[in-house]
Amino acid sequence: MRDIYLDESIIFLDLQEKTKEDVLSVMGGKLYEKGLVKATFIDAIIAREREFATGLPTKGVSVAIPHTDIEHVNQKTISVGILKEPVAFGVMGGGPEETTPVQLVFMLAMDETHSQLALLQRLMQMFQDADTLNYLCREKNKKNVRYLIESKLDVAFKGGE
């Protein structure tokens, strides 16, 4: 099984996009530029988000975990987007009009189904930790964001120093 990829180039601080579509385009565009996903990934992840929203209200700031089918992915990747101002995302499992003001986006590019249980569980555990989420919203150093996520998810990411 290949390792999961995260480096500073796919950590976004102060994203200023105003809509979820723009946020997903910017983040997905970078993943494509780096060859981590296929060109079809961007449209697919936007379409998937419209159909099956991934916004999650937590005890801290709201998060979103946009993802799509494995055939659009080249390399298993997590990209982190910290939004300057909250952006409305649909609520996972919620009604069609239900939105939540998302401040942290964890874009998941997964290349196998039913995999990465431990990683996903740790990610969800992180969502239950309001202090960590609040800290991430304020952090201005990409390295620190990467270190924190590495330690919370207990993985050493492939990708550049």
Binding site: R48, E51, F52, T68, H114, Q116, Q121
Partner: peptide, 15 residues
């Protein structure tokens, strides 16, 4: 079940 059968259903399945 989840939208993609990849991420969230994996976590729920295990629970």
């Amino acid at each position: 079940a989840c939208g993609a059968g990849i991420a969230t259903s994996t976590v729920v399945n295990s629970a």
